[in-house]
Design a protein around this nucleic acid. Structure first.
Length: 878
RNA sequence: GCCGGGGUGGCGGAACGGUAGACGCGGUGGUCUCAAACACCACUGGGGGCAACUUCGUGUGGGUUCGAAUCCCACCCCCGGCACCA
């Protein structure tokens, strides 16, 4: 007899029954509308799930459960992103294979997800490290390769000279390796890339077709970084060190190209800059006189030594060297000095710029430091001397030959046409987005299915030979030269290609983002061994209707997955052009974490203001040495609260209700275990209320309720029921889970009040029966264990998951008394209870009749009366 | 610097341009109890008042409106992201 919410008694019982009944198995029914609800593919870590992860999974679960009850075919799968560095590093340390370890972690995740009652269809689950899965990751790689969208080239990578390994950007903190603390160097190693840049425009355009948080869309647009401008040629003239008269042109050289978004300022160009890694650099050195050549070489060496991080630090003072060479501005034939400076990036645009210090902050800083001329060519208005650097585009050209006087936009247009007419350049759209570096010289990833033939060609491994399996290796550590551990395995490397010729296998593996770029397609048809998925099935489920996860994947994962989906669409493999129709980001769960002030001999990393300590340490230290901050829960901070402990203390449903209620879904929350008691009390009240309603319960209420015109308390009861059905359905749909729970709380409070006025009439009993069932069903997605327990307790069969979601009747939800606010000059003076549908005239009359209102109208002239039907009356007095 | 998202009681947060503070936490008082816990009931934004009431209140300053937490302009602060991208 559940007089109280007593989770220990029934939560695991229901979880066992759900499993027994295979309740969450996906039912594919093409006659029904479909709903695909998906959580981000988690990487299973040894620390297990925290309540922070639950904040992701529970809301998605509530939505999916409601959709299922509303009659949708629901796909709600979960699997594991198993490849990756953390597992590999752990494998290196423990000298054990990463696979069983990740498996163990994944199973622990699953245990915890089951513990909090999430309705995943585990029959569709897979690990991305399973050959049956990564076979198809390789297959997609080959399609990209065959389409010319996967290629290999020499590229600079982050090299850790102590650990002798290539590092991901995320593994570098302040120019040093996170693990070894070594200064990171740049190394040039052949790398595999995907040509995501080819899809740049579509990746921008199609953002308009998806329902995503505006912030995430904007981050993607910024990342892709489209800019419109002009690219044009500059000729190099070799001459003396000082410009001007007496300059002798020794030889004509190949031109270099520059890209600019401000062609309108081209008459203000007083120098140009090449990146130290510019392809023309060797030629420049040759052309320069000996002294300059020496300085250029020195500068290039210094630039090479700088870590990417240091180099990109915007606070750094600008550096550069003059080459002694000059380039010719095609617009006015003037010669401008060519400098080399690392503030120009080789990887963007052409790696060279025209520098206009009068109208660009960076060029201005450089010119001022090196004493280069600054010429204003844009003015905000006639006769106005622009304050330099003047970078806004609001203005007119000055000192610009025949273009003087034109507005910026107009000049850009005309100058672009001028370039195109003479074949010197063209208007161009430039993207900041770079190609996606996919290769890793690491063991624990999906092998790249390529064979290098003796003739130096690259061939995809024949489809019949896929998957290329990860071999077993002696050591998981990368080689001294940074090569993959796979390169040590002769049996793996030496192979034959499709024609039987000897060849060498590619030993790079793919970064984990490849695996997570298509898993949502595999969930549609997870065990197909003939193709990655059956297109018909994928077209039924795709796109994902609601995709839920943390905002930290705003760019990388989401951009890559979009790119692959578009490519797969182009290949005719799926109709969808976007993978995720709606995206939601949950807020983080923060933990109140102690820090201490650093001692005199300790220094803090940039951005830190204290040293992390444990609660025990905090208790021992003097109070003025300790301070607390709200920071994200993480294993390394030792501030994690696990669902296990909360479930043990308060129950899974209480945890679910609490997390839903505590704050709006996308907002960060400050974890406070005591507050869970609010959810416990609420569930207790629900159980008690069910007991109180039970004596009135008639299982057949549905058949009879419409035979009575409800009046009085019964009518009020039905009204509240139908209002709550409406509110909770809408709130769940729009991810307003906090107000959904609060609506349920209000409903429970009001049912309690109404029960005190219980009547022994059939209409009341029927209304109470409707309320009782609605209460249980509306609450079931949030508190599914309690829902099923109560459903059984009131004498019914089956699972709430398989029952029909209540529908609301607008006629029943309507109020028959309205509260009218009466204002005088916008200030509330009285409220009136009037029958619904009251006329404006009656409202005004009733309002004037109010003594409280009359007080404020006395002796004053009413100039205007504003009536909002059914809501408000406002008297405007002089 | 740029791009997003926010500033509402002691706290978490509600609120189609129309009664600010729903719902919950915490607090105060009470009921139950030998007692405590639980539970239940009442009160709980600030000032003034015995009270009816009144007045001030949604980061700051302006504006639009009969009426602004909500719309517009300027600014301040906090959080997240990007950061020499020409």
């Amino acid at each position: 007899m559940p007089e109280r919410y007593n989770p220990a008694e029934f939560e695991s019982k229901w979880q066992a029954r759900w499993k027994e009944a295979d309740l969450f198995k996906t039912v594919e029914d093409s006659d029904k509308p479909k709903f695909y609800g998906l959580d981000f593919f988690p990487y299973p870590s040894g620390a297990g799930l925290s309540v922070g992860h639950c904040r992701n999974y529970i809301p998605t679960d509530v939505l999916c459960r409601m959709k299922r009850m509303q009659g949708y075919s629901v796909l709600h799968p979960m699997g594991f992103d198993a490849f990756g560095l953390p597992a590999e590093n752990e494998a290196i340390t423990t000298k054990s294979h990463p696979e069983p370890m990740v498996h163990k972690y994944g199973l622990n995740y699953r245990r915890q997800m089951d513990l909090i009652g999430v309705s995943y269809d585990w029959s569709r689950s897979f690990w991305s490290s399973d050959p049956n899965y990564y076979k198809w990751t390789q297959w997609i790689f080959e399609q990209l390769f065959k389409s010319g969208l996967a290629y290999r080239r020499l590229a600079a990578v982050n090299w850790d000279p102590v650990d002798k390994t290539v590092l991901a950007d995320e593994e570098i903190v302040g120019g040093r390796a996170e693990r070894s603390g070594a200064l990171v160097e740049k190394r040039f190693i052949p790398q595999w890339f995907f040509k995501i840049t080819e899809y740049a425009q579509r990746l921008i355009d199609d953002l308009d077709t998806v329902d995503w948080p505006e912030g995430i869309k904007q981050q993607q647009r910024n990342w892709i970084g489209r800019s419109e401008g002009c690219q044009f040629q500059m000729e190099i003239a070799a001459g003396q060190d000082s410009p001007g008269e007496g300059l002798q042109i020794k030889e004509r050289t190949p031109v270099f190209e520059v890209f600019t978004t401000r062609i309108d300022t081209v008459f203000g160009m007083t120098f140009c800059v090449l990146a130290p890694e510019h392809p023309l650099m060797d030629q420049v050195v040759k052309m320069a006189c000996r002294e300059h050549a020496r300085r250029i070489e020195e500068y290039r060496e210094a630039a090479k030594r700088l870590s990417e991080n240091d180099r990109l630090a915007t606070t750094r003072e600008k550096t550069g060297v003059f080459t002694g060479l000059y380039a010719i501005n095609p617009f006015n034939k003037q010669q401008v000095p060519i400098w080399i400076a690392d503030y120009v990036l080789a990887t963007y645009g052409t790696g060279a710029i025209m520098a206009v210090p009068g109208h660009d902050d960076r060029d201005f800083e450089f010119a001022t430091k090196f004493g280069i001329d600054v010429v204003p060519v844009i003015s905000p208005g006639a006769g106005i001397e622009p304050p330099l650097p003047f970078v806004t585009k609001d203005g007119f050209l000055i000192n610009s030959g025949s273009y003087t006087g034109l507005a910026v936009a107009e000049a850009q247009e005309k100058l672009g046409i001028w370039l195109e007419d003479r074949g010197l350049g063209q208007r161009k759209i430039q993207y900041r987005l770079r190609d996606w570096l996919i290769s890793r010289q690491r063991y624990w990833g999906c092998p790249i299915p390529i064979i290098h033939t003796k003739d130096g060609e690259m061939e995809p491994v024949p489809e019949s030979q896929l998957p290329v399996l990860l071999p077993s290796v002696e050591s998981y550590a990368p080689g001294d030269d940074g090569s993959s551990p796979l390169a040590q395995v002769a049996e793996f490397v030496n192979c034959t290609d499709a024609d039987g010729r000897l060849g060498q296998r590619e030993t790079d593996t793919m970064g984990g983002f490849a695996c997570s770029s298509w898993y949502f397609l595999r969930f549609c048809d997870p065990f197909n061994d003939k193709q990655p998925w059956n297109p018909e099935i994928a077209n039924y489920w795709m796109p994902v209707d609601c995709y839920v996860g943390g905002a930290e994947h705003a760019v990388m994962h989401l951009l890559y997955a979009r790119f692959w989906t578009k490519f797969l669409h182009d290949q005719g493999l799926v109709k969808a052009t976007e993978p995720f129709q709606r995206l939601m980001n949950q807020g983080q769960v923060l933990s109140y974490t102690p820090f201490r002030k650093p001692r005199a001999d300790e220094k803090l990393d940039i951005g830190e203001d204290g040293i992390l300590i444990t609660k025990e340490e905090a208790a021992k230290l003097p109070k003025d040495q300790v301070f607390y901050k709200w920071v994200r829960m993480s294993k390394s901070r030792r501030n994690v609260v696990t669902p296990d402990e909360v479930v043990a203390e308060h129950g899974a449903d209480a945890l679910r209700v609490f997390l839903l209620f505590v704050a709006p879904f996308s907002q960060d929350v400050q974890w406070n275990t005591e507050s869970v008691t609010g959810a416990v009390r609420f569930l207790n009240r629900v159980f008690r209320l069910v007991d109180e309603l039970l004596p009135f319960y008639n299982r057949e209420w549905h058949a009879y309720i419409d035979m009575y015109e409800a009046t009085g308390v019964a009518k009020e009861l039905r009204r509240r029921t139908h209002q709550t059905i409406k509110k909770s359905s809408e709130d769940i749909e729009r991810f307003a889970f906090n107000t959904y729970i609060s609506a349920m709380m209000t409903y429970v409070n009001e049912l309690g009040d109404l029960l005190k006025k219980a009547e022994d009439t059939p209409e009341f009993k029927l209304a109470a029966s409707e309320a009782l069932e609605s209460l249980i069903l509306l609450l079931a997605p949030a508190a599914p264990h309690s829902g099923d327990e109560l459903w059984e307790y009131i004498g019914n069969q089956g699972f709430t998951f398989e029952l029909e979601w209540p529908t609301f009747d607008p006629a029943l939800a309507i109020e028959d008394v309205v509260t009218i606010a009466v204002q005088v000059n916008g200030k509330l003076r009285d409220t009136l209870e009037l029958p619904a549908g009251v006329t404006n005239e009656d409202i005004e009359a009733a309002a004037r009749a109010s003594s409280k209102v009359a007080q404020h109208l006395e002796g004053k002239e009413v100039r205007k009366v504003v009536i909002v039907p059914g809501k408000l009356a406002n008297f405007v007095v002089a």
